[in-house]
Every structure is written in C-alpha cells, then in structure tokens.
Design a protein around this nucleic acid. Sequence first.
DNA 1: GCGGCTTGGGAAAAGGTTTTCTCAAAGGGA
DNA 2: TCCCTTTGAGAAAACCTTTTCCCAAGCCGC
Lengths: 349, 349
Amino acid sequence: MVSDAESAPVFAKPPVTLREVAAAAGVSVATASKALNGQGRMTAETRERIRETARHLGFRPNSLAQSLLRKRSFTVGLLTNDTYGRFSLPLMAGVSDALVDKGVSVFLCNVEDDQRLGQLHVEAMLDKRVDGIIATGKRIDRHLPVDLSDLRIPVVYAFTQPDPGAVGLVSDDAGGARLAVEHFLRLGRRRIAHVTGPASFAVVHARAEAWRDVLKENGLAVGEPLLGAWSEGWGHEAVEKVFGQAGREGWPDAVFCGNDQIARGVIDALRERGIRVPDDVGVIGFDNWEIVAEATRPPLTSVDMNLASLGREAGLALLSLVDGQPAAPGIRKLPCRLVVRQSCGSPPG
Amino acid sequence: MVSDAESAPVFAKPPVTLREVAAAAGVSVATASKALNGQGRMTAETRERIRETARHLGFRPNSLAQSLLRKRSFTVGLLTNDTYGRFSLPLMAGVSDALVDKGVSVFLCNVEDDQRLGQLHVEAMLDKRVDGIIATGKRIDRHLPVDLSDLRIPVVYAFTQPDPGAVGLVSDDAGGARLAVEHFLRLGRRRIAHVTGPASFAVVHARAEAWRDVLKENGLAVGEPLLGAWSEGWGHEAVEKVFGQAGREGWPDAVFCGNDQIARGVIDALRERGIRVPDDVGVIGFDNWEIVAEATRPPLTSVDMNLASLGREAGLALLSLVDGQPAAPGIRKLPCRLVVRQSCGSPPG
DNA sequence: GCGGCTTGGGAAAAGGTTTTCTCAAAGGGA
DNA sequence: TCCCTTTGAGAAAACCTTTTCCCAAGCCGC
C-alpha cells in the first residue's frame, strides 16, 4: 500500500508554523494569527481564506509558544503517594475527565513516601510552569511528603490532608456511615455492630462516631466499635469475637464494616459458622470496591465515596483558582452514596 | 510567625528570569546563560559569580522557553484505557520512575474506550509537543481506540497491542505459565488442571499452550483447559465441574489458574468441599495481585508479570527512541516471576 | 477639496532561553 | 613596534505566537 520510503518512521518533518500559513495565504503572521483567533478586523473573505489555508496545511498552534506568552500552560500536576492503591485511580480519572475538555493536561507524579522524589517532581512541575497542583494520597489524615504551602501557584488537596488555609476536598465519612446505619434501621435491624480499621486512622473515628450517633438518636444500645486491621483476616477474627460467645440472642443482626475487605471476611466467617447473610445478619461495607463487593456471597452493599466526583470537583476547583476566582479555603466534604446489593435483605414489608 | 501579608496566598510574584540574574551579576544574558550551562569561555570567577547570583536569586530556567528553542519538551504522554484497572497502575509507576530522574514528566491520559477522547488527548499532547507517547491498556491483544501509527513522534506500546512496525513490550505469558507448571512438577504434582478466562483473550491461549507443552515435555497426560470468566464465581464453578464427579483418584492434585480471582474462587470452593490446600491440591494464580493473593487461605502462590519493570523498560525504550537511537521494532517479551506463598506446599523432601 | 473617521492589514515587541557571530583587549613573537 | 592569536564577553538571531500600536487608503460631511 505505502511505499517503503513512506512507511519508514521518519520523525523529522516539523510541524507547520503560523509563519508558513501566513506565507501561503499571502498575509502577515499578525493577520494570520488574528484571523484564526477571531481577533482584529479584516474582510470576511480574508479571514476565511486564511482559515482554509491553515486547515489545508494542518496547522496547529504551538502550545509552548502560546504558554510562554500567556503565562498559562494549560497544564496541572497531580501529586500522589497512592500509585498502587485503589483510591487515587478513580480520583485521577475524575480529575483528568474534568480537565480534558478545557484543554488542560495532567502531569502524573508518583512521589511514594519519598521526600526527595516529591521535591524532584514539584520542581520539575514548577519549571514546566504548571498552572496549579492537585495533591492526593491514600489517606485523608496524612500529609504528602512534600511541602506545597508556599508555592506561587494554586494548590488543591483531594483525599489527603490539606495545609492550613488551603482548599481541601474530602469524602464525608460520617455522612457515609450514617447512610449505612440508617439503611439497616430502615430494614428493621436493631443490634448493629461496627467492625473497622486501626485507631490510627481519622476516618475510623469519624465513621464510628456517626455510627454511635445514629444509634443514640434512635434510642438504641451503643457498644464499642471493634478496631483492627483493614483486612479480611480481621473480619474473620471479629466474627469469632462477636459470634463466638454467649447465646444467639445477644448477637447483632447487622454488621457495619469499615471497608469492603473486612466485610468480605465477616461474610465468609459468618457463612462458615452457618449464620445466614442477609437473613440472620446484614452486612454493609465501605469503599464500594466493586471487584470485592461483587464477588462476596451474597454481593455486598457498600458505601461509595464517589471518588471520581471528588476528582472532578478538585479539578474544577483548581481551575477556578487558576482563573483568579478566590475559593473559600478550608475542607469541603462531599457526600457518599450507598450502593445497595444483596447483603442486607429487603425491608420487612 | 509570619505576618498576615505574607501568609495571604499571593500568587502574583513572577519567577526570576535569566535577564534578572544577568543584571544582578552585571553581565549580559548570553554570558549568564553560558555560565550556568558550562558553555562558552570566561574566567572562573565570572562563572562562579554568576552561578552564585543565580543560586541566591533562586533562578530556575523556564522550561517552556527551553523547549521552544530546543524542540524537545522533556515531556511524554501516557495513554491508557485502564484507569480503574490494576494493570496500568504498576506500569505507570514504572514509567514515571524511569523518567523522573532524567527530568521527563508524564502526561496521564485516560481515554477509556472512547475514540473522541483518544483523539482529544492525542491532539492536546501533540500541541504541547510531547517528545513521545507510551500506549498502554488493559489487554495485551487489543488496540487503543486511537491511531498512533502516523505520528511524527516516537511511540512505544506496553501491555497493549502495538501497531505493525512499532516497538512493543509485553509480558511473557507463556514463560509465566511454564514457571507455574514447572513449579508444580518440582513439587511432585502430576495431574495439573488449568482453569482460566474466556477464549477471546489471547493470553488465555498463550498460557494454556505453555501449560500443555510443559505437561507433554514431561510425558504427562494433557487434558483441555477450562475456559470461563475472570471471576471468583467461575473458580467455584470449575471446582464443581472437576471435583464434583467421579472418584477421588481422577482428581487433579494441582490447579493452575488464569488469574488470582479465579484461584481465590477455586481455593474457597475446595475448602468448602473439604479438600485441603495445599495438602490435597496445590493452586497457583496469575497476576500476583497482592491484595487478593495475600488474603486467600492459604496465601496464594502466583505469577507476577513484573509490570513495574515493564513500565520502566517502556520508558527507557521511548527515551532512546527520542534520542534518535533506532530501536528494533517488534514485540519484546519480558519475563514473569513466580511469587511463592503457601498454596502449593513444600517439596516432598 | 479637505479634515476626520473607519477599515484592512502590517510592523514590531514581548515572552525566556540558547547559540552563533562578532569584537575589543591583551598577550606573544619577531 | 607591529602583527597575529587567544581570551573574555556581548549583540543579535532564533524558537513561535499574540497583541499593541501604527499606517495607508477610502469614505463621509461640509
């Protein structure tokens, strides 16, 4: 089909410049620029002729030159230390999604937990004149290993601990927990246990407190949450602790879990003890990690933190900051939603 | 500590330019440039004085201006349609890791399976004068929804189907399968079943063929692989099919699974039937998805595709292409490795 | 016929850096 | 003392686009 000469990968042919377009159309570069940008005054036919020439030549303006002039690169940096994790991913997709339509590209910077790497990435981004930075991480209550508090460009924090005075977006964990517990209550469940992660996580306390609050508001007995690891194994252990003792009548009829892996462990352990889910006990997880939630038997009802939306919001917030809109500093909490599957049963009706 | 005036986020202060450094040092910009880049001729003290001035002023060259001039942006694009998946992540980390030290930043572009989005991202990257593009995806045997075959910049394909004549890096799935089966053989297992994904995936055939070959080479009976879905559920089903019938003597003593989720389903189903892992049956998975492999009971031995290395290699390959080194086109397969946990038992000795 | 206004379009600067060319001064040999 | 070479450093072009001025021609009213 194509000749050898053409099929050989020749990367040399340089892109066509505005100067060439102008020459081909018989005008000056100034006029050409104005024609293409809808600026300046000229006859309609001149404008159209230039546009046609540009189209024909496949002209695309050099972003580098534009950025240099406008002092705006249409580029932002996304800093994360959660490269392998499942939190950053939907979040990044949301950011990218919100920005691509506005012609903004995203530099992905994985800083691990390495100060040096963080420094390196931030300097590279600054040198490349990013318009702003979004910082994200695997924990809502930890800082990235890098100081962004004194940059000359705007910074938005999403799903990570913001610096004081900065704009931060996080999930409303307490609200998410309420969603779960109130769902149980609507289904007629009354003895609702809470099995969650380690005390060192802020979200553990936020969710536990909300769990406690809802129970109190409804005049129900409140116990202590069971703190452990974020793992299936801890789910098993917890079931042993709670269901391994005493008479059946003291058992919970619902377990609200701090994440989906714990919930998975809980469900498996319950099944192994012959306790039926959802008939005897309802279970709700957190994170709505689909690949886990859909594989449990029965599929797991779970709280979704809407991370993609969080990412989109973060992208838009950064953009408006870049445009000079003063954003209200402080932490904004975005609502979670409950994804109902089959681990809680149906209302008694 | 800091005054209000200082703590207010003022983004205005522009970066210091070479011109300012030159003025402060009492030389021309040309001399300043040469001093900082180790070019040109001047007295050692002049050079050092300029460098000191630059350091003191916190001068950092504007990458945009440099790129414009050098026609080299130290920026590459990473195209993927696997934003939520677990394959792209380690791969992206590897790419970023290989490039950050060379001052190269990575644009992350999530194209989903959307042609329009792909086009949009590619054009944005081209406009921003990326030096090259790495294409990656969730399947080794599918193209991204975008044509990269005729760009004027180098492209490397990693873990996705390359265009003919391009440079492609993939995992050696056959080699990985051999690793697994040979591990079983070393442990004295002789009746090795293979439960894997749908026939529409090329890797399914590559791995199954390697499985078959190793068995043949060792003079063992070869059956048909069991094709199904990439899910835990299919793992359960498969166990039922294989272990649900006939006498114990016909049962396999090992199951090689096409991914870790299937393996997890297999292990759970075996346990539920009272068949012990690894005593009665050994199990090996594929992907080494740690969060799954470590949560199975017992923890799962699995084939790791070394995706981070794949990413690093892809990054380096692209860089050498950008530097004008002609790389051998075609698909290069990178070896897998076996991560041994406890689902296969110990050698008989 | 002339001053002023509009219209269509160009020249040039700006943005920050690199690189090539040029040039003046100094030094050395005869 | 004169010529040639080396040394040290600056001027200017180049990269590509945008934008601000500026200018010439044509038109209006008077």
